[in-house]
Computed example of a mutant assay.
Amino acid sequence: MDSLKILIVEDETITAMDLRETLQEAGHSVTAIARNYEQALKAAKNNPPDLALVDIHLEAGSTENGITTARELVAQHRMPIIYLTANSDFQTFQLAKETLPAAYLLKPFRHDELKLQIDLAYHYFKYNQAQTSGYPVSGALYLPIDKGHEKIELKDVLYLQADGSYVKIFMLKREIPHHISTNLSHLAQYFISPNFYRLSRSLLINLEHLERLERNHLFLINHKTPIQIPAASRKELMKKLTVVRTK
């Protein structure tokens, strides 16, 4: 299961705390707990999540409050939405269904079911993104550089590194990285082919250029600076590679 950044939109404190504990036990991180529309949109802008859990009935009492929030979250940043609700009436379900959620879970939720639904929702989201989105799986990409757009070949990208409000893009045949004014979570949506791997919150590497792997560092071809491997990411990284093991 991938470790995801998840936004919780829930106005009941006890439920929100229970959700956060369940997610953290599953290896996910919670970007924020929002109680209403305004808090949710602000939280998603400050730290874009991979997925959002949204209670349909938020404070202010409007049935559509959670649905409207989910709709605006997706418009601001593409992500799968999982609805949580204690109300299973048909009208509410029909309204929620129009926003194409990844799942619709009734409270009280079962912890194991929630974990599975999150995994399935994100897996399907990434698969569907690769199949139907306008983002290239391979080929060229045009970066906003110097008041225009400059072409790069995805196969020549070594890695992407978050740097404050910018992202550095290191290229195979270029000493100085490109600086793009955006966050890594947003830019990563354009690097969705299997060879691009999110090593950490601040690093996205191209495994095609991985030349050497050590216990705590990895080395990319034609790039002298070693890249530190977070301890929490090493096991998952090894699963992506065909490694010969000795007896």
Rank of each mutant, 00 (worst) to 15 (best):
G134Y: 01
K42Y: 09
G139E: 11
T85A: 07
I81M: 06
L73P: 06
L172T: 03
A60R: 13
A40H: 12
L106P: 11
K126M: 08
T246G: 13
Q94L: 14
N65A: 14
R20E: 13
L213K: 03
Q24A: 04
Q94Y: 13
K247R: 01
Q189C: 09
A26F: 03
F109M: 01
K126L: 14
T242H: 12
K45F: 14
N206I: 00
Y197I: 00
L114R: 07
D55V: 07
Y166A: 09
N183K: 12
K240F: 02
K5V: 05
L53E: 07
L154F: 02
V157K: 01
L51W: 02
L220K: 01
E10I: 00
P136G: 15
L141I: 09
A52P: 07
L100P: 04
D112I: 10
G164C: 03
E59Q: 15
Q91Y: 14
D156T: 10
F109Y: 07
A140K: 15
K168I: 02
A86C: 08
L19E: 05
E64Q: 12
I221M: 01
Y166G: 12
F219E: 01
A130N: 13
R20L: 02
Q94R: 15
L199H: 10
P80G: 06
T92V: 13
L237I: 06
H209M: 00
K147A: 04
M79K: 10
F90E: 14
Q39S: 12
H209W: 11
K107T: 10
I180P: 07
I227W: 04
A96G: 11
K107F: 01
R215Q: 15
A32H: 08
L114W: 02
T13I: 06
G139R: 09
S138V: 11
N36Y: 09
K240N: 01
I180W: 03
G27M: 03
H209E: 00
N46C: 07
E72I: 00
E38Q: 14
K235V: 08
E72C: 06
A32Q: 08
E59D: 15
S200C: 03
V54R: 04
V9N: 04
L106Y: 14
D112H: 10
L154N: 03
A75H: 04
I67L: 07
E113M: 12
I6W: 08
T92I: 15
S202L: 03
A70M: 02
L73F: 15
I176S: 06
N206D: 01
I118E: 00
P194E: 05
K5E: 07
R234H: 01
D119R: 12
V244A: 14
K5W: 04
S62I: 11
I180G: 07
Q117N: 14
A188N: 08
L204F: 02
T69G: 09
K126E: 09
R234N: 03
N36R: 04
E175C: 00
A40E: 14
L187W: 03
K247S: 10
L105G: 06
H179M: 12
A40D: 12
K240V: 03
L143Y: 09
